[in-house]
Amino acid sequence: MQRAIPRASLAMLLLAALMRASAAAPIEVRLHYAGAREDAAFLGVTQGLEEANLQGGFLGQRYVLDGERDARARPAAILAAIEEEALVALAGQHPDIPVFNLSSDSDALRDKCLTNLLHVIPSREMKRDALAQWSKLHPGSKALAQAWHPEFKKYSAEQLSKRFFKARGQVMDDGAWAGWAAVKLLSDSVARLGAADPEKLLDYIRTRLAFDGQKGIDMSFRPNGQLRQPLFLVEGGKIAGEAPVKGVVDIEDLDSLGSSACPQPDSQ
C-alpha cells in the first residue's frame, strides 16, 4: 500500500503533464455495453477502451464503460452483442444515441434502416457476395467469409492481433474485432470532433467517418447502417484470399459486397 502511493502520484503527474499538453478541455466519454461479458465482442470492447484511453491521454479524453448502477444515465454510445429483436428494441429506446451491432449478421436487420443502428459486423449478404466473387476464380471452393483473421499481417493487422492476444489471452475473431473496431472508430471520431455528444457523434460517424480498422482501406457506413469493409476468405482455418476479390472486381470497390442502399427509404 505504501508503495502504491508514490506510483499513483507519478501517474497523476504524468496525466497532468499530458493534460497540459492538450489544448482541448477534458472530456469523459461514457459507453454502455449490452450483452454477455463472456462474449468475444466484450473482449474486443475492453481492448478498444484501453487503446482509446491511451489516445485520450494525449487529448484529455477519458473513456469509461458504465456499470449496471448508472446504466440509466445517457451514454455517448451503446455497444451491443445481443440478438436481433432485443437490438431493434434497444435502438428504438435510444433514437439519438449511436448503437453498434457487434454480433448479428441478419440481412433483415439491415433492411430496417434504423438511423442510429450501426452494423460493424458484416451482413450475411456481404459474406455471400464475397464467396460468389471467390468461387468465380475457385469453383467448388469451400471457403468461408470472415470479418477478421488473426493471421492477417498487412496494414498493422498483425500488431492488433498480437496485442489483443497478449492482453486477452485468446485470438481475435470476428466478434472481438467488431467490438474493438466500434470503440476505435468512436474514439477516432471523438478525437476529431473534440466532443462526445451522442447526436454529434452519430452524425459524424454516419457522414464523415474514414476508418481503416487495420484492414488497409478507408471504411464508412452505408445508408442502411452497415460498415463497408473488406472480408477474408478462409479455407481450412487459413487465409485463402481477400474480398473484394482481385481479378473479379476492383479491389477498392467495397460496395461489391452487400447492398449499399436502403430498400425502404420511407421507413426511416
Binding site: A17, L18, A21, S22, E51, L54, Q55, F58, L59, S156, Q159, L160, D188, A191, R192, A210, F211, D212, Q214, D218
Partner: peptide, 26 residues
C-alpha cells in the same frame, strides 16, 4: 503514431511530449 493518428512532438533534451497533432489516418 500510426494507430493513434498523431504527430507527437518531443522536446530535446527534456524528452517530454510537448504537443500532439491529430492528422489523417496512419
Amino acid at each position: 503514431s500510426e494507430s493513434t493518428n498523431m504527430l507527437h512532438i518531443i522536446a530535446v533534451p527534456e524528452h517530454k511530449v510537448v504537443a500532439n497533432i491529430l492528422v489523417g489516418a496512419r
